[in-house]
Design a protein around this nucleic acid. Structure first.
Lengths: 188, 188, 188, 188
DNA sequence: GATGAATGAGCATTCATTCAT
DNA sequence: CATGAATGAATGCTCATTCAT
């Protein structure tokens, strides 16, 4: 990705996360990227294409992080802990992108179906970890698919938590608490 | 709410959930409600006002359900179980509205801040239940606010689960599994 | 056709004839029709639709004129003479529309194919007259289709003649000369 | 004209004839000519200049053909016959260019006025032939200017005939029929 | 000679809102 | 109460032209 395209990419992430897909304007993306509006169209065919690019890149990098951990020589338990921490931190560091993602899961437009498909491959990655952990007896036997969604729900919850009470608690503390609650439940 | 206003309300919920706030059009709402476009403006001041109305009504009814349960003569544990089940079912039955809600939590617009404020009062309601449960020793001591967000995260996760694998599992089974996992954690 | 739609129609004929399809702008049509730009889209779906409407209406009225003459109780020779005169006058009176037509016969766009199809039904009308005249022995046996095209070529030639030497000769004189030349040829 | 310029010229003729002046794009011309867009501007100052170049070249070659025939040692009658055949064939062989020409006779733009001026010199050439033929008694006394326009109208009619019924009749047959009809008229 | 990235003015189209009936 | 024609600001997108390499 060359310099101009990267500038557009970064501007787009910010704009989409602030205004959502429909609220975002090409004028504003161009302004934020400090290029002329025509330049957007030199590098991308349309607003939708910029959006897709943003989403694909983002999900790619979240998956890449999981794969990396999965290939480490660690037990299932440590892997799960590490993935939790890693993904929570990642979604927090790229809060802007994450908001784009979540606000566009719903709905009937093509780009929205596309996001759901991409997310599915992401979920499958989490599922695999859960399945391994189950077979190792680390995690209760159960529905690994549902677990992967709950995991994702936690990411979203954290994102909302952050946006509603912005910055009253360190992200590290939040992450640790969430991991504890998810792993061991809330009952005394 | 008279007949026409109710028709507009219901049309609006559907339209907003299908297209999001910006994607929704007054033309389409009028069409779905089978009234003339001008009629929308007789009953509401603007698109934003219709949207607010939809959101306030929805959150109101979710809160009402919790209050009702809270006033029952039950122990903390049973209350939590009941609220879980009730809210998961409610968010599933009103999936359309729920999608509107989630897609609009993010962003800087006024209506979005307003939603976050309304949600906060909802979270506070959940928090109270958690606090009571903690003082009764039913739930681990911890951060009740965070717990209320994780609870909400589970609602969202279920909604996504439903939309992605639409209808492969009965909602009752899903609800029970989620309650188990949330209460007791995933570890073996 | 109500008042507003008529105003748009007339503005469109002028604008398209002055600038061609691509050169014409919706802004200018709105200006000429003295309505807001949005009004164009209240009455027509798109620029193409305005264009189609203009063309269909125009060809319709040229065909109507021929049909009317065809139904009169006249001999073939008189009919041909009358149709020549009538169509030449008509195309001259609606020079603006006629220019729109001719400039858009060529090319691969949908609207252009559509025009050619409409013109074909027009040509067929002329053909019928020629066929009748042949069977009555008034016109030489030959290719009636080609004759109908030559007839149309004469209309165009007159239009060009008018535009190049604008107004140096009365249209009536021009018409009579053309009829003579077409009917009897140029040879001495 | 060097190789690159010729490639651009030929690409331009095709593009202009397919899309008209305004519909044609520099991008597409560059693509068709297999050169970079900037190269167009190395060889021509602007889109208008390419267009002018195309038109001037085309009319030049049609005039050249007439002059050549005019200089032959033939009677008026033979000359007219030869010119008819020659120009009809030429306009058919360069149908693409011819379409560009006709679609741009109309309208108020500078390039369109320019075309009309160039055409006038072309018409004058035809006129001369007619005048000579009249003085020799080969052609009826009359308006030689109008005759030259009718002649041009026949070229156009043939072009339309060709485009509408593409290729159902050999061009040679069409040409002969047209010459007959123009010279001797359609009456029996 | 030739290239292609970058530009920005211009354009078709959308849509929330108004208002006379 | 209800309507729907009319509005015009806003927006996605196109494309001729420029210019540094």
């Amino acid at each position: 990705m060359n310099k101009t395209k990267r500038a557009i990419f970064e501007a787009a992430v910010r704009e989409f996360s602030e205004r959502g897909y429909n609220g975002a304007t090409m004028d504003e993306i161009a302004l934020k990227a400090r290029v002329a509006k025509g330049t957007l169209y030199y590098h991308f065919k349309s607003k939708e294409e910029i959006f897709s690019f943003v989403v694909v890149e983002g999900i790619k990098s979240m998956q890449a992080a999981i794969s990396e951990i999965n290939e480490m020589d660690l037990g299932s338990f440590e892997k799960i802990r590490l993935i939790c921490k890693n993904q929570l931190t990642l979604s927090n560091d790229n809060r802007e992108f994450f908001k784009v993602l979540i606000s566009q899961i719903w709905g009937k437009e093509n780009r929205q179906s596309e996001i759901r498909m991409l997310l599915n491959t992401y979920f499958r990655e989490i599922e695999k970890v859960m399945e391994q952990a189950m077979s190792e007896g680390v995690v209760k036997k159960g529905n690994p698919k549902l677990m992967s969604f709950l995991f994702f729900g936690n990411l979203i919850a954290t994102a909302i938590y952050e946006i509603v009470n912005n910055g009253v608690q360190s992200i590290d503390d939040t992450v640790n608490e969430i991991i504890e609650l998810s792993l061991r439940g809330i009952l005394a």
